[in-house]
Design a protein around this nucleic acid. Sequence first.
DNA 1: AGCACGCCGACT
DNA 2: GTCGGCGTGCTC
Length: 842
Amino acid sequence: MMLLEIAVAAPIDQTLTYRLPVKISANPDGDGTISLIGRRVLVPLGGRKVTGYVLAEDVVASGEFKIRDIAEVLDVKPVFPCSLIALFRWISNYYHYPIGEVIRAALPAGMSPRSVRCLELVDSAREDERFLSLPDEKWRITLQEKGSLSAAATKELLASKVWKKTIQQFIKLGVLRLCESVTSDGVKEKMEVCYRLQHWLPQPSVDLPDESEIFQHYRRQLDAELGLELKLSEAKTLYYMKGLEEKSVDGTSPRKELLELYAGAAKGICDLKEKRLVTEQKKRVFRSPLGERLEFFPAPTELTDEQNVALAEIVPAIEQGGYTPFLLHGVTGSGKTEVYLQATAAALRQGKSVLVIVPEIALATQLEAHFVSRFGEQVVLLHSGLSASERFDQWSLAMSGEAKIVIGARSAIFAPLNDLGLIVVDEEHDAGLKQDDSLRYNGRDLAVVRAKQQGIVVLLASATPSVVSYHNALCGKYRLLTMDNRVGNRSLPKVTLIDLRKQQSSGKRSLFRPQLRKALEENFIAGRQSVILINRRGFSSNVLCQECGTPVQCRDCHVTLTLHRSTQQLLCHYCGYSVHEKTVCESCGSMQLVPVGFGTERVETELQEMLPLARVARLDTDTAKDRKAFLQTLKLMRGGEIDILVGTQMVAKGHHFPGVTLVGVVWADGGLAIPDYRAAEKTFQLITQVTGRAGRGDSPGEVYIQTMRPEHYAISLARTHSYRHLVEKELELRKNPAFPPFVRLVAIHIQGESEQDVERSASRIAAACRAAVKEKKSFVEILGPAPSPIDRVKKNYRWQVMIKAASIEILDALCSYVRQNQQELVSGRCKVMLDKDPENMM
DNA sequence: AGCACGCCGACT
DNA sequence: GTCGGCGTGCTC
């Protein structure tokens, strides 16, 4: 009797114990030694069946509960390697999320079936008068016509007050019945019918000039050897099969291809099967996600000195094995990709596999081209943009070891690679690495945890590392690698600041000051490309001093206040501090405080008016919704078919646009006004990243930055590319009031349809936390409750409580406390979500 | 999450 | 006096 530790796909914190009954064989193929760990099972839970993930075998039951039998073993081999189990447990514990849900989120969608109930009309009761006399409701007609209802329809019906009772009566009468069935996965391995020749056909001894001679040869041969009389169609089929077999790896001919060559094969195959000359088998096929040919990138003939220095540290670490975290700070254009490629090659030489995490699909596609150019077929792409079946295929390739390199967005951190030797995280500072719904994990942090657990090298890289990561490097937690120079000794672009506060003298007010306008015109005439960045973050309602450009800040929190017109208040979304909207500027005393913000399209329109002949394209959240269109725009830009690309942060990310020589930023300080303690850090990163788009080709780049606050350190330091000064300044500022890396944060989000319930719940949670930490000696602070910066989403009101603590233990204790007492703390139907290390403060 | 068990209002 | 509402609490 074997007991198993199983994580069920339900919100239960603990793992459960189930028995593997003797009648269920774990290994239907007869091999009794293969473990169940990492495989999926179907288990009874309460009154239904759900997917369970086997985490351990031969466990000891505590005897506290009755142990039920597994209903079914769903896989013949593991779907995730056992090395990931420790990561799943860590995540469950760290992010306070049920372990089964963690695994469900980690696996490709559609791999966690559950049982559903369908209402059926009992056949013998088809003519039941009581049933037939029911009103002509849709469900009754469907039942009569099809005999059964879909799971969704059944659920809806049983939830309705009007019909529940009637249905139950008919079930009692034996007219209707509820049938339990397991939802089909949706994602299945795609199988293909293949044929295999059972009799070896010798090549014709002499070169036979035409096909009909070959057919005759086959017929004579088989007649002589086996006494079989072949029809012409059979001989022809054999001939084409032989051709296909020679091309295939495993000596089989796919039915589809065979029929394309020779339609008569449909009949021929049937006859050949009867004669036992051909057998049929089903084979896995893999659907290629590569829509089109990838660009080829040749390997460089030599590396830069800095690349060599970095690799001289990374490669030995990979060869020796053991947990070694690196932070690679390499300016834009310094050739970080080549470092990833060389490091990957080193890991592959050790027989290890490699995981590459990027913040965004578009970047994955770009990196993929580099990796495929160097390593060919061993590379797979794993990201949410793939269809469920494509994702499943890529997953299987990684699991089976056929793919050695996985490139993907944050969820690829769960890639089922065995023998991992290296994890690379590109653009490690990017907020896109943080998942901001349901399980709120940070892909970069998980990369470090996975590397630590598996004792391998992790390489975090960025032109603008996050302040927290850089601080870790300064403290010695990470090994710091620096690349300060661009490949080919190209200089970083010259950055010019344009002060927006200086009044425009003449005529119509434009979003572009003369200097930028002139540069754009000249660049267009010279046939070169430009990029214009609009900092979308500046579009929320902030109040800015017209005289000095300073936004109104919170007294305690070092974040910008948000304008609430309805209440005429300026409100802090961290702690709830508020002032009347008519206030004075703290830095200059001016009363000239005005709300800011302008429309995105206006930038595009104005550019088009300015340069009617220019091909202008826009890249923002609106236009990026369609992934294909988004990638198409990037491709057009890369191919030089767009003159000016306008966009939000998206245009700034590590895209390689070789023809861009001019970059303009419409309003650089817009992002400084967002209510986020990292506003300055993010603004600096954005400007630096977009600046890096200029002058990557042969011509040196120019950058024009329009700003209300040229003297603000985030902007002035970006002008001089002074990353290290920015870090120093930020670290100084974050000591008081304390923010990461000096404290840890958790945001507790409360949302629900009733504003009152949400507010009351938030207050109770905050009060309970305050009471719980009264005695604590080490630093802990509870901020709020306060409405979330975006305080109403889809009919839901949102509030938040923020907890700052010096020790992670206190933070975790509070999280557990809130979760355990949720029932008492939360009123009505409010949802509570814990966000550890929050990235997006909105 | 589902689903069962369990305690208070509108009906026969 | 019953039926049935949906509030708490468990699921190996």
